[in-house]
Design a binder for these strands. Structure first.
Length: 545
RNA sequence: GGCCUUGUGGUCAAGCGGUUAAGACGGCGCCCUCUCACGGCGCAAUCCCGGGUUCGAUUCCCGGCAAGGUCACCA
């Protein structure tokens, strides 16, 4: 068969010689061990936690090694295209400090552009044409129906499904048959003529998984779809070669198609990049674990963390904790060092899928937020409240001096003991609500009505906002003693039966009256912040209730 | 079902032939204490199963089993 003629018929016209691509996209001039990595999302605009997970790994490795991270858009499937998606992806990653050096909408070095695969159609076709010329690719006229019938037949016979070997009908079409089909205007795809044997295994070194056993590919995969646009597999081989990617870190769902990619690199005469297949994030679903799914799990969406008000830094710390097993220890040891200084290593990445643990994230969030100054916290809360807070919460920012005092109390004084009251911005805003408005909740006073009134009225009788904490508390103790409560905790503990309760019960009544809560930070300070008028008002109201 | 990957407490995990099998989260208890939070101390809880190899296996080998992934003109 005259393959050159066939190639001309299938992909007519002049295409650049393949060497011109090699010249146009020369090897990169980078330091010895620098890695070139990339993120290659499809333009759905939806970027989830799993993407972030892989993105952080790619970013860290590229930049730790003095290499390059670029953004390529895999828009070969029109159905996935969403307007504004690329900007959304860039913004979402930027929120977590992931910056690209070049790529779609980045504006860096554009030597390796275009970054949208649709704009590279001619490049893929040039390579496909060459493959046809060499007899390593061929047109396939099978229809979708025929293909699914084939699949059904294979399933029935318990054989491996797919287009391969004797099942690859169009692989051995005669010249006459091909041209007849072409003349009849039948639609077709271009398939790879695989030379592999699926019964043969070889070992492959994966940067994350180590030595793995892989079978050869024998599938005659589609490389050019009927619209002349390449499939992922083909575009991956061509682009990652031409864009001079050195390391591909991707989700382990790609591991199964690795043999295809390796054969493609081989038939194209390219040297494949190094690969690292990253385990995916899992979630507990009943008794079994499964991959996080965007339909079922709101916490997979990055917008979830924004809406809840998780600090991006905390999310990043958590991701890093899962990504590199020794990160947590390093971060605990050097909490003030920038994350960029952590010696991130691909060899430290885990081999098995980690279960996403919200408890752990919350703990990290608490710790990271507690490290913020009150001013930083305020700025963080303000940004969140503007987008997601209630109008009432937004009004908290009218008096920032007051808010600052509240935050300083809830976070502890810098340098001294830190509190960890805040997990997320949303929760923090709710937490401090009682400083601003009549609290919605009212926890139990823990004493009978008469006692409550006696405590409240007794407190009011000697309350003086000018008293310092010591004096204030000694008055509370005195009040406790007068009403039959133990003024000292140890007295109470020594002989509980001798008292109605302890000073803590008295304080509890005051606390609930003023804040509505059984648990708050230091009560004296709360009264100081609220001021005399509000404090008296609340206690009075509680005494009369 | 075929193929691939993975299997250390509830979760994340150190570990690489000999350990009282780290640490963190969560749980529980105690201390501190006006409550909470912080902090400190402590407790419970783990090497998937069966065979080998070896003086000795969590660690190496083989076989099960379980879980996950994948089998498109989607990426």
């Amino acid at each position: 068969m005259d393959f050159s003629a066939l190639a001309e018929r299938l992909l007519p016209g002049e295409y650049p010689a393949l060497e011109t691509f090699e010249k146009r996209y020369p090897p990169r001039d980078l330091p010895k061990n620098a890695e070139v990595t990339r993120l290659a999302p499809s333009p759905t605009g939806f970027i989830h936690l799993g993407n972030l997970f892989v993105a952080i790994a790619n970013e860290r490795i590229a930049h730790r090694s003095g290499g390059t991270l670029y953004l390529r858009i895999e828009d070969t499937d029109l159905k996935r295209k969403v307007e504004g998606a690329v900007e959304a992806v860039i913004a979402a990653l930027d929120y977590f400090d992931i910056r690209f050096d070049e790529g779609a909408q980045i504006g860096g070095d554009d030597t390796y552009a275009p970054w949208y695969q649709r704009q590279r159609a001619d490049i893929y076709r040039a390579y496909a044409k060459e493959l046809i010329r060499r007899g390593r690719a061929y047109p396939c006229f099978c229809t979708e129906e025929e293909l699914s019938a084939l699949r059904a037949e294979q399933t029935e016979k318990k054989e491996v499904t797919g287009y391969y070997g004797k099942y690859a009908r169009c692989r051995n079409l005669s010249e006459e048959e091909i041209y007849a089909a072409l003349d009849a205007g039948k639609p077709y795809v271009i398939r790879l003529r695989s030379m592999g044997d699926a019964s043969r295994h070889f070992t492959f070194h994966d940067e994350i998984k180590g030595e793995i056993t892989v079978t050869q590919n024998d599938q005659d995969v589609v490389i050019l779809k009927s619209d002349g646009i390449p499939t992922y597999h083909f575009a991956h081989a061509v682009d990652d070669h031409l864009m001079r990617t050195t390391l591909v870190i991707r989700g382990e769902e790609w591991l199964a198609s690795l043999p295809i990619h390796l054969e493609l690199f081989d038939v194209l005469g390219f040297r494949p990049p190094k690969y690292g297949h990253n385990c995916s994030l899992m979630k507990m679903d009943g008794a079994s674990r499964r991959k996080l799914s965007k339909r079922k799990d709101p916490e997979l969406s990055l917008s979830f963390y924004r809406q809840e008000g998780y600090h991006p830094f905390a999310v990043k710390v958590y991701m890093l904790t899962l990504l590199n097993s020794d990160f947590e220890e390093w971060h605990a040891k050097f909490p003030d060092k920038p994350l960029e200084e952590f010696p991130f290593r691909i060899s430290k990445m885990g081999k098995s899928g980690a279960l996403f643990d919200l408890d752990k994230l919350n703990d990290i969030s608490r710790t990271e937020l507690s490290r913020l100054s009150a001013e930083e916290m305020l700025a963080f809360l303000r940004t969140w409240a503007q987008a997601f807070g209630t109008p009432e919460q937004q009004a908290y920012f009218a008096d920032e001096e007051y808010l600052l005092k509240v935050l300083a109390l809830c976070m502890g004084t810098a340098g001294k003991k830190r509190r960890k009251d805040f997990v997320t911005a949303r929760q923090a805003m709710e937490e401090i609500g009682y400083f601003f408005s009549a609290y919605a909740q009212r926890d139990a006073y823990g004493v009978d009505e008469g006692t409550r009134r006696a405590i409240l009225e007794g407190f009011l009788a000697t309350y003086d906002p000018k008293n310092d904490a010591q004096v204030w508390f000694s008055k509370v103790k005195e009040l406790a003693a007068n009403l039959g409560f133990a003024a000292e905790m140890r007295d109470y503990k020594a002989d509980p039966a001798a008292y109605k309760g302890s000073v803590s019960d008295v304080a509890q009544v005051l606390r609930v009256a003023v804040t509505g809560r059984a648990n708050t930070p230091d009560l004296w300070t709360i009264m100081q912040i609220l001021g005399e008028e509000r404090t008296r008002g609340r206690i009075l109201a509680a005494a009369r209730a």
